[in-house]
Computed example of a mutant assay.
Amino acid sequence: MPNREHKHRILVVEDEAIISMLIEDMVSDCGGEIVGPAAKFDDALALAREAEFGVAVLDLNLRGTLSYPIAEVIRGRGIPVIFATGYGADGLLDKFKDCPTLQKPFSQKDFAQAIDAVRH
């Protein structure tokens, strides 16, 4: 279980620069600290394995590569994952259906609610 000081560190994996910047602003507005952001699968996987964070927000589709292997590493560390996707919860593999999903485009309020839900 991540310790308290890492709970407000949020790993952001998003391949669209504009969306990544919006999410960074949302993290800051929630009082969080960004880990990353990572736009490339390999960079995200390295952060998933090594970085200290309490929550991860993953774009499901990184330039045609699905981020499930990244999510598996993160969940294996006992850290919650939130998927950000245009496909919605119905687009997730069954073994990830328990992960919260942010339907793109999402609001600051939706983001804050998802983060709060996994922190408790």
Score class of each variant (00 low, 15 high):
Ala89Val: 12
Ile74Lys: 05
Ile79Ala: 00
Leu62Phe: 10
Ala89Leu: 13
Leu62Gly: 01
Ala39Asn: 03
Gly36Ile: 04
Cys30Gly: 03
Ala84Asp: 03
Asp90Ala: 15
Gly64Ile: 10
Ala46Trp: 08
Val81Ile: 09
Gly91Thr: 08
Gly54Trp: 07
Glu33Gln: 15
Gly36Cys: 04
Thr85Arg: 05
Leu58His: 07
Asp29Asn: 07
Asn61Leu: 06
Val73Met: 07
Pro100Ala: 14
Tyr68Glu: 09
Ile79Met: 04
Cys30Ser: 15
Leu22Gln: 08
Leu102Ile: 10
Val73Phe: 07
Glu33Arg: 11
Ile79Gln: 00
Cys30Ala: 15
Gly78Cys: 05
Glu24Pro: 00
Ile70Tyr: 03
Asp25Pro: 02
Leu92Arg: 10
Thr65Leu: 09
Glu52Trp: 10
Ala89Phe: 04
Leu22Phe: 05
Arg75Ala: 06
Asp90Ile: 14
Leu58Cys: 08
Phe83Lys: 02
Val73Thr: 14
Thr85Ser: 15
Gly36His: 00
Ser20Ala: 15
Lys40Thr: 01
Ala48Gln: 11
Ser20Asn: 03
Ile82Gln: 02
Gly32Val: 04
Ala46Pro: 05
Ile23Pro: 00
Val57Ser: 06
Gly31Pro: 07
Arg63Gln: 11
Val35Ile: 15
Gly78Leu: 04
Ala84Pro: 02
Leu60Gln: 07
Leu45Asn: 10
Glu72Gln: 12
Leu45Met: 15
Ala44Arg: 08
Leu92Ile: 07
Gly36Phe: 00
Thr101Cys: 15
Ile18Tyr: 03
Tyr87Ser: 12
Tyr87Phe: 14
Thr65Arg: 15
Pro69Cys: 09
Arg77Met: 08
Asp42Thr: 11
Asp42Val: 09
Lys40Phe: 05
Tyr68Asn: 08
Ser28His: 12
Val57Asp: 09
Arg77Trp: 05
Arg77Asn: 06
Asp29Phe: 07
Phe41Gln: 06
Val35His: 04
Asp90Gln: 14
Ile19Leu: 10
Gly64Thr: 10
Thr85Val: 06
Gln103Leu: 14
Ile23Asp: 00
Lys97Met: 12
Leu102Met: 10
Ala39Gly: 13
Ile82Leu: 06
Gly36Glu: 02
Ile34Trp: 02
Val57Leu: 15
Lys97Asp: 10
Leu60Trp: 00
Val27Trp: 04
Tyr87Asp: 10
Ile23Glu: 02
Phe96Pro: 11
Ile34Ala: 01
Gly76Asn: 04
Asp43Leu: 12
Pro37Tyr: 04
Gly31Leu: 08
Tyr68Met: 08
Arg49Gln: 15
Cys30Val: 02
Lys95Trp: 08
Ile23Tyr: 01
Thr85Trp: 00
Arg63Lys: 12
Arg63Gly: 14
Leu66Trp: 07
Leu66Gly: 02
Met21Lys: 11
Ala71Asp: 01
Ala46Leu: 14
Gly91Cys: 10
Gly64Phe: 11
Asp42Cys: 06
Thr65Trp: 03
